[in-house]
Computed example of a mutant assay.
Amino acid sequence: MAKEDSGIQAAVGGAADAAEAASNSSWLDAVARSGFAVMALLHIVIGAIAIALVLGAPGQAEPTGAIEQLAANPWGPAVMWAACIACGGLSLWQLSEATLRGRHLPRRERLGKLISSGFLAIAYGSVGLSFAGFALGQRGDSGDSTRDFSTALVQSPFGIPAMVGLGLTIIGIGVYFIVKGCGRKFKEELHHFEGTHRGKLISVLGVTGHVAKGLALLLTGLLFVIAAATNNPSSSTGLDGSLKALRDHPFGPYLLLAIGAGFIAYGVFALVRARFGRM
């Protein structure tokens, strides 16, 4: 029996090693880098939309709105499918980070990698599905989708605690981005440029971009918590709604401008990540 168990473990370990070797292939790295570039472009477009909102222009300052902008060109369907493949590859790469390569880490670090990379794999995969939806002609308003999701969640068993938990999770992710930016922990993802003008510029972009994205996530998570506390799921409108809500406050437009500029900075940083990042 012990020999059979050891044989099964050896077979599983060998299969995992083979899968890890496949995940380290140059083609997957290339597709994942293109996925980082797509995400960079989305952040730049979202930042531009957020700034335009201050000037009274229409638009949705979130991934769906950015994808809609990218789809509005003669090569829209081809761009959508290419971006879908890129995001799918990036999702697969993050999944391999969470499972195959993460299994070599100490237990605590392995759990952290499973949570962080696993969440990113889901996030990038969902963006890839959004690109596929646009390529197939399926359009929708993200604010309406978020409100529908919130309404269904509230009406389900344990709906209010679940919505509070979701809001707090998003707030926690926002705090993570702020801490990562202020602590310059993003430098671990890049080849070193210390002591150069390029390194200083990358550091400024990284700090500004991570903090801005963190603030936007804090606002989004806060709307979920408020919706749960007031039992009003219609007030939960996602990233776009949280940014548009800033326009109604005295200093909101200035904060919206800062967040928009920060998203653009994060997008430029992500382009650097796509080119010079550690894979």
Rank of each mutant, 00 (worst) to 15 (best):
T230R: 14
Y266K: 10
A19D: 06
L41F: 02
G143Y: 00
S23V: 08
G125Q: 12
K3A: 11
V45Q: 00
Q69D: 01
K180H: 04
G252K: 11
L129Y: 11
G125Y: 13
V38H: 00
F177C: 08
G13T: 10
L190T: 05
H104R: 15
V225M: 06
A2I: 11
E189K: 15
A229G: 08
V127P: 04
S242F: 00
L218H: 03
Q138D: 05
T151G: 02
K3Y: 05
G172D: 07
G13C: 05
S156F: 11
A2M: 11
G137S: 02
L42Q: 00
F193L: 13
Y176C: 08
G195D: 03
G140Q: 09
N232M: 09
I122P: 03
H43L: 12
K3P: 01
V207S: 02
I170R: 06
F224Q: 13
G214T: 01
F177Y: 13
W27H: 06
V79T: 14
A48V: 15
L41Q: 03
E20R: 15
G143C: 05
I49M: 14
L129S: 06
D5N: 11
A261L: 14
V179L: 15
R278H: 03
G128I: 14
A21Y: 04
R103E: 03
G65C: 06
E68Y: 00
A274N: 02
V45M: 00
V127Q: 15
A258G: 09
D17C: 04
F224T: 09
S6K: 14
N24L: 15
L243K: 00
L255T: 05
A50I: 12
H249C: 05
I115D: 02
E68C: 00
L111T: 13
A37M: 08
F193K: 11
D148I: 03
F263G: 01
R110C: 03
G174L: 12
R147M: 12
S116K: 09
G133S: 04
S235E: 09
A40G: 14
Y266D: 05
E109G: 10
D144A: 06
P253E: 09
G125N: 08
G35F: 02
V179T: 07
G35M: 03
A274S: 14
A2P: 03
Y176G: 09
A15V: 12
E62P: 04
C87P: 04
F193R: 14
G118P: 01
